[in-house]
Every structure is written in C-alpha cells, then in structure tokens.
Design a protein around this nucleic acid. Structure first.
Length: 889
RNA sequence: AGGCGGUUAGCUCAGUCGGCAAGAGCGCUUCCCUUACAAGGAAGAGGUCGUGGGUUCGAUUCCCUCACCGCCUACCA
C-alpha cells in the first residue's frame, strides 16, 4: 500500500459543486419544521477575513447540524450596500482616472457604483461560497434590491406617519472628509495624547478670565464663557462681558450647573456650534450659534483672519497669535478621547445641521421587554446586560446621510415653503398641499443600517405577505460579532416588533473577536490580518474551520497563534489514512455489503472491544448533540477529535489488527463495527469538516448501506442506547497493563515480540485467554505461562508485580536498577501523598456527614486503588533491592 | 469614571451544577521510516490554576481585596 496524505484542493471544489447541483442547501421541504439563520450581510467592499471565517463557520455548523437533524434548514445569504464605504471606494477609483463624483454628477456617479458592484460586489460571496457556506444561494439578497428598497421606503413612511421620524436642526457627528452626518454609533473614540491649553480671555472691564480647552480654534465661535453658579472664585464675575480676541465680539460670563469646578480653571468657553456640551448649554441660555467651519473642516468667513485655513492649521495659527498677544497662560499635556469616522478615520467634527431622525425610546420598549422576559436569549448571557444598557440610554437615531449611494429618502419638498414635506413611497406628481407642479426630492440617502435593520423580514419579501415570510419568520438563531450589537442586533429587534409584531429571532450567539498577539482586532487596515483564503489554499477549508472552532470557546475572544490550523490539517490526514486502512481491510477480507442493522441485532455475540467502542460512540453522539444545543462548539470538536484519534484509532483500530486474515469474527463483527463507528463519527464530524466527511461518505457506499445521497442530507445519529458500562473498567485495565509493559520495554530497551514470563494465576484479567491475546498483541510481547517462585527469578530478568500475579521479562545486558528504582520511588511518593489526603478525608467525620454519597463512594474507591497501587510498588521495589522473599505469592 | 472579559504546562488555550490523581494542541526528551498515517507510532518530562483574605467537610471553580492585560460604554471642555 502506498503512502498517502490527504489533499483537500480537488475534493473541496468537487463536493461544493455537487452539493449545489443537487440543491442540498435549498430549503424546499416545507413539510419539515423550519430552522432559519439570516447571515450578517458582509459589505460588498469586503474581502473575506478571519472574523468572517469564524462567524460563518459557526453558522454553517448550526445549519448543517439542523439540516441533518430533520429540519427544513435555511441559511439566507446576502450582502450589504455599505453606503459610505462603497462610495469611498468608487470615488478613489474615479480619482485614479482623474475624475470626481462632483464632476460626474449624481446620476452618472451612481451608474459607476452599480458597475463597480457588478464587477466586485460579489467577491466576498464567491469566497464564502467556494469555501464552505451551505447557504441557500437561490435566495441571495442585496440591501439595494428592489424589494429591499420598497421595504425601506415603506418603513420610513410608516414611522413618519406615526411621528417617530422627524426632521430637525441638531448638533450631530460630521465627517469633514466624507462630508456627511453620522450616527453616534458610527463614531469610534480613541484615546489620544493632546494638550490642554489655558487661554486668557480679556474681560471688558479689566483683567482676564482663564479658560482651558483642547480645541483653541473653536474659540472663534465662542458665544459665552460658563462657570459653575456656586463657584466662589467666579461668582462675582457672572454677567460680566468678555472681549473675545480676533473676532471683536462681546460675550457674557454665564452660570451653568454643567460646569465642573474641578476641571481646568473651572471656567469653560462655550462654542455652541462645535461641541455637544456647549450646544446644550447654549440652548438653556439662548446663546448665539456661530458656525466657524464649512462642511469640509475649513474655517469659514466667521473665522475672521483665519478664514480659509484647515481646522488643524488654524489651531497652530491661533496658538501662535495668542502667544504673540501673551494670552496663553500655560499648556499641559492631556490625554483624551477623540472621535473618528468609522469609515475613513477622519477626526469627527460636531456640527450643526438639519437632518432626519428616528425617535428610538418608543421602539426600544418591546426590545427591552423581550430580553427581560427571557424570550430572546443571548449566548453568552452577559451580552444581554450590555444590550439592555444601551437600549435604556438610547438616543434618537440620525438617519440621513449626505452621500449619493444608498436608499434615497422618500421625501419631497414643495417650492412653496409653507407646505410641509411630502413623505410618500410613490414619487408625487404634484404637491398634495398646494397642487403645484414640481416637488423636489430630498437629496440625502438613508443610513445603511436603516436597511439592515429590516433584514430578517425584508429578505422574505416584506411588506408583501409572502409564503416565505409566513413560514420562515421569526428566524431562529442569529450568529454575529459583538461590534454590531447596537448597530444591527438591537435595531433588528426593534424593527421586528414594530413591523412584524414579533421578535426576529430567539437566540443570539455572539462569537468572539479574532485578535492578534497584542490583543488588537484583526483587520486589513492594521496589517495584522491572517488571510483565511491563504490558509485554505494551503491546507483546505476543513483545516481552517477545525482550527478556528477548536480555539473559540463559548464566545471568548480568539487569539490566533501561528499554525493554528495544523491541528485540523493533521486530523484530516489521520481520518484520511484510517479510512484507507478500513478500505484495505475490507478488500483483503472480501467484505462488501456490510449491514449495520445486523450489528444491533447480534449484540450478545460481540466481544468486550466491540461493546466498548460502541458504547463510547453512543456517549459521544449524546455529548456532541448536547454541545451543539448549547453553542459549545470547541467542546464538541475537541471531544470528537479525542474520540476518533485516541480511542477509535489508537485502540480500537489497533485491536482489529490482532485477527488473522479472513478470521470469522473479524469478518462478521469487527469489520462491520469498524465501519459502523466510522460512518456515525463522520456524520458527527460533518458540520465541522464537511468536505472530507462527504468524500469518505461516498467511499463508504461501496461497502455499506449508509443512508442519504449525501452525508450533508443524511440523518443526524441518535444514540443506540447501548449501556455496556462494565466494558469500561475492563478496557481500562487492559490499557493499563499494556501501557505498563510498553513502559518497561521502553525503559529497558526490550525488543519487539519479546517473551514475557507471566504468572497470571493472580492476574484475574489475564485468566481470560482472549484478553491475554489482546494484551500480547497490543504490547507486542509473548506470554510464557510460568508458575515458578519469584525467589527463583534469574538475575537478568526484571519483574513487575500486578495484583497478586506477576510478569517478568528477560533483559539483555545490564539491568538499569537505578532507573527503575528512581521511577518507582517517585511514583510511590506521588501516590503516597494522594493516599494520605484521601485518608484524611475519609477519617473526617464532617466529610462523611456532609459530602454526597457518591463522592464518598468515589473517594473510597480511589483510596482502594491507591492502596493496591502502593502495594504493587512496594513489592516491586523490594524485588529490585533483592529482598524478594516476602513478596513471593 | 463605570461596566465586562482575561490571568491554568515553555507557547496558544479547554476545564458547564464547588468533590480530578487538573486536560488538549504545539514545543521539549528518548526510541521507532513496525505492512493506514513521520502531518505518524510508543514511552516520558513539565503546573503550589495571578496576589491576599473569606465561605465550606472540601475551592482552579463561589464571595471580597489587590495587581497586571484587554475590551466596551460615558457630554469633564
């Protein structure tokens, strides 16, 4: 037989295609109970990164498991139009060609974006698809699809009519690079080292008041200085005026509770148009709002001599001028949080403008209740608290964006300014209020998340009352990342109740974040990303999946070490080669049609080894199913790994080699059990490593009567209900003896198939010839039955006492007594300690009184085992020191 | 400032209701290309489970303190 390794490339490509051709992933069997997951739609600008890989592997495991478990499993795929991100990408492309969106104009620009989308927008889907995701691709959705647009408009109009959407002039987060408003969630705060500048503001009378600020350039827009009403330092100054430098403006000193006396000097400059705090102070005090920047972050005409400067150069300039005027008291280093645009990383500018908002308080109610009532659960549970905390403090949602790529706001304005806005799904011909002819549509588009939050029902055709909507909504499980808990998850729950009257899903599994060695999130822009596609090219999707899953315990962040996928890769190789052994075995013994049902019918004819592995398999089926039920993916995959490799391969397959070719028991029982365990384990492994299991499933068909056309659509195994508990103890004993002999053989370098003198009158397990054969085979020795006394032990033999019998082996050359002594002594010490501990426990009345019976029983049993072990070691030690008379049995 | 997560073998991590003689993968040591597999096999070494208290018959596990690492929220300019 030739050496072989598992080569995934062709196999993975082959089966993916077959699955699709056969429609394995289509959720078409409406007689079955549905199980539904909607994918968190990746951005069309995205590449598959390791975070997607983890997130989608988990979804795929759930879907495949449920599909096999008899559900009409539906995984809805789709992509997100990602308004700002996509517009930025296309603008960059245009820039390369010397074009700009302004030069093209709205219509032509949008054409470009659609072209770009046609060309690259499905790249990430192709990656997912080629690689593993068992989505129902016939239902692929896009957030800019016509029905999605229709849903978005319907929702807007409905919320507007309920008074939950309004238009207003507020201070909002503005990105001067993207020149658009952003929601609070779209701003990323980062600690940055800056300065705190103490500036002297000359008072109208005489003297100065010193204010502290991190942003001196905004002073040009100051319309007051505020102090705390009870601050004795400034009490008398309230109502005085300040002569604001550069802009020639008198501004008052006012008193406001919001001012912290301890911070800075206790006096704060108030810039209502460029700071959210100052904005609220200004509203309380009816201050003037003076905007000193334009939409791109340049100082405007209100900035007097600084007009035209960029906001950051203006800061430098103004500091220079202040120094010249001796108006800087001091400058301190200061670390503070600075908001950045989540799409382009530009520093956010608080900015006053007219935008559309959604009132969130009312919508949040049902979303809070459903979690309180336990009808929507988070896994891990701690996320519920974070979710609730956000909803409890929810602010209105700014939904209008001053970009072009996205859902146009369904609002028109009449030329007559007295007419209210026309809010309608259909384009109005004329103004319904005054009848005039040319209503103009609002130029803005909606926040991308304003379409994403409708995802769980919009993908099924809402607002139409479709059959899909009726059958598949609400969905079951949402698998997503922590970073979009507020952006997306919370808003979906709100939308679900508002528009469907029902929660959109009942379980939310928040998978961990994949981080690099320094704890940073893996991302392309940070340059610390591991490219999953590269790993797949190298070792296959199964290896990647297995490696990822193995490292991600219940919602914990994942810290990827180099070569994390080797575990999976090696495992696949093990599976591959063990399968080849089975094939070879079947062919050699001319076994063709193995009937699994026969195994179950003739249980009583099975020997301990078969019963043992069947029992372990049964337990494993139960365990893996339980793990999946509780989102314990790594526990499931690791316990399957252990079972397959360290029980099935290391022991059971090895045992099968003890039978001669065409042995009756081998052919009639062992081979069927080998195949049976293989087949069932492959099913359990399928959700984790779909490709190799599918390949082997089809190879199994040559020998067995496995069910289903594909393993992907076969049935999830149920335990047979075997309870051969007694085999466990015996197999453990056999393993122990085998390991003991192997240890001796290693220590004393004894050759293979050495003759071992054994007195098994006292070793009860070995009184069974079949057990003896098995031990001999596994330990690669031959037993000579002897009944001589240990006193007659020749000097070139080493002896091990086991229970009340013993075995002895001839040792070539020098027996290294010292090595053996050392080993036994340290073993003795170790066991003695534990023995003492258990003794103490068992003589403790409180323990006996309070501990549960099974714990006491367990401790007693351990105590006995330790005692007999100590006894053995004692005797063995005595043998080595030569005083072997007493231990002769 | 609050909240959350982490701290277990050299490295990366498991350890579900307190009752283990504390596990895995990689790495390390010794031996073996034995007819499924060297991406393999056999046998090993390696941990006072971050600190200090407490509860308990019993704590890696529960409670409190502290330390360090990380994350998330917050209108201290």
């Amino acid at each position: 037989m030739e050496k072989d390794r598992y080569h995934p490339e062709e196999i993975e490509a082959f089966w993916y295609q077959k699955w699709e051709e056969a429609g394995c992933f289509k959720a078409e069997n409406y007689t079955k109970k549905p199980y539904v997951i909607v994918i968190p739609p990746p951005n069309i600008t995205g590449y598959l990164h390791i975070g997607h890989a983890l997130n989608n592997t988990i979804q795929d495991i759930l879907i495949r498991w449920k599909r096999m478990s008899g559900f009409n499993a539906l995984w809805v795929p789709g992509t997100d139009h990602a308004g700002i991100a996509t517009q930025n990408v296309v603008e960059k492309e245009l820039m390369k060609k010397g074009l700009s969106r302004e030069a093209l104009g709205r219509e032509k620009f949008l054409k470009e974006v659609w072209l770009w989308r046609e060309k690259y927008g499905n790249r990430i889907i192709e990656q997912l698809k080629r690689l593993w995701a068992s989505c129902d691709w016939s239902r692929l959705c896009f957030t800019m699809d016509e029905n999605l647009s229709h849903a978005v408009q319907t929702v807007f109009v409905s919320l507007y009519k309920k008074g939950l959407i309004y238009r207003g002039t507020r201070i909002i987060n503005w990105c001067p690079r993207c020149t658009t408003a952003l929601s609070d969630e779209e701003v990323e705060y980062r600690e940055e080292v800056g300065h705190l500048y103490y500036i002297r503001y000359p008072m109208e009378g005489k003297g100065f008041i010193v204010v502290a600020t991190t942003r001196p350039e905004t002073m040009l827009g100051d319309t007051a200085v505020a102090v705390h009403p009870e601050d004795i330092r400034y009490k008398d100054l309230i109502g005085e005026n300040i002569h604001l430098p550069f802009v020639d403006r008198l501004i008052p000193i006012i008193a406001d509770q919001q001012v912290e006396q301890e911070f800075g000097t206790g006096a704060v400059k108030v810039t209502p148009s460029h700071d959210p705090n100052d904005y609220s102070i200004a509203r309380r005090h009816n201050l003037q709002f003076i905007t000193v920047m334009d939409t791109t972050g340049r100082m405007n005409k209100n900035a007097a001599i600084f007009a035209g400067l960029d906001r950051f150069s203006c800061r430098e300039e103004i500091l220079k001028k202040l120094k010249e005027k001796n108006l800087i008291e001091k400058i301190e280093p200061y670390t503070h949080r600075v908001g950045h645009c989540y799409r382009c990383d530009t520093v956010i500018e608080p900015y006053i403008s007219e935008q559309w908002f959604v009132k969130m308080k009312e919508l949040a109610g049902p979303a809070i209740k459903v979690v309180h009532d336990g009808e929507l659960r988070f896994y891990p549970e701690r996320w519920a608290k974070i979710y609730l905390q956000w909803l409890d403090n929810i602010h209105d949602w700014c939904i209008s964006r001053q970009i072009w790529w996205g859902h146009r706001i369904p609002v028109w304005y009449c030329s007559n300014e007295k007419c209210p806005p026309i809010v309608s799904v259909e384009t109005p011909e004329r103004c319904p209020f005054c009848g005039c002819g040319h209503p103009v549509q609002d130029p803005d588009v909606l926040d991308t998340w304003f379409s994403s939050w409708l995802w769980p029902f919009a993908v099924f055709g809402w607002p139409e009352k479709t059959r899909d909507l009726e059958i598949f909504y609400p969905t079951d499980t949402l698998v997503t990342a922590q970073e979009i808990l507020f952006f997306w998850v919370a808003r979906m729950v709100m939308a679900g109740f508002e528009f469907m009257g029902k929660k959109p899903f009942s379980s939310v599994y928040i998978n961990g974040t994949v981080r690099d060695k320094t704890g940073k999130k893996m991302s392309k822009s940070l340059g610390n990303a591991i490219d999953p596609v590269e790993i797949i090219d190298e070792a296959g999707a199964d290896s990647l999946r297995f490696g990822l899953i193995s490292l991600t315990s219940f919602g914990q962040d994942v810290f990827l070490p180099d070569g994390f996928h080797y575990k999976g890769r090696n495992f696949l190789n093990k599976i591959w080669n063990s399968f080849r052994y089975l094939e070879m075995l079947a062919e050699k013994n001319q076994v063709e049609r193995i009937s699994f049902s026969a195994i179950r019918e003739e249980i009583e004819k099975l020997k301990i080894s078969e019963r043992w592995i069947l029992m372990l398999l049964d337990r494993k089926i139960q365990h893996v199913s339980d793990c999946l039920e509780n989102f314990r993916f790594n526990e499931a995959s690791d316990s399957l790994y252990d079972f397959y490799w360290h029980q099935y391969c290391d022991w059971y397959i090895e045992m099968s080699k003890m039978y001669p070719e065409k042995d009756q028991y081998l052919v009639s029982k062992v081979i069927p059990v080998l195949f049976y365990v293989m087949a069932r384990t492959l099913k359990l492994l399928h959700p984790f490593i779909p490709f190799i299991t599918e390949e082997l499933w089809h190879r199994l068909k040559k020998f067995t009567d496995v069910d289903g056309d594909f393993i992907a659509t076969s049935s999830w195994p149920e335990p047979d209900g075997f309870s051969f508990e007694e085999t466990l103890e015996k197999m453990d004993e056999i393993k122990k003896i085998v390991i003991e002999i192997r240890d001796l053989k290693t220590t004393f370098r004894i050759p293979v198939n050495h003759n071992l003198d054994v007195d098994y009158r006292g070793i009860s397990l070995l009184s069974d010839p079949w057990h003896r054969t098995m031990v001999e085979f596994l330990a690669r020795v031959r037993f000579n039955s002897v009944e001589r006394s240990l006193q007659d032990k020749p000097d070139d033999e080493i002896v091990r006492i086991w229970e009340s019998g013993w075995f002895s082996m001839k040792v070539r050359g020098i027996i290294d007594i010292a090595t053996e002594m050392k080993k036994l002594s340290s073993e003795k010490d170790k066991i003695s300690k534990i023995f003492e501990e258990t003794s103490r426990k068992l003589s403790n009345e409180e323990f006996l009184k309070r501990a549960p019976a099974e714990v006491i029983e367990k401790t007693r049993k351990l105590q006995n085992e330790l005692a007999s072990e100590l006894n053995k070691i004692e005797k063995n030690l005595k043998l080595l020191t030569g005083s072997n008379h007493e231990c002769d049995n």
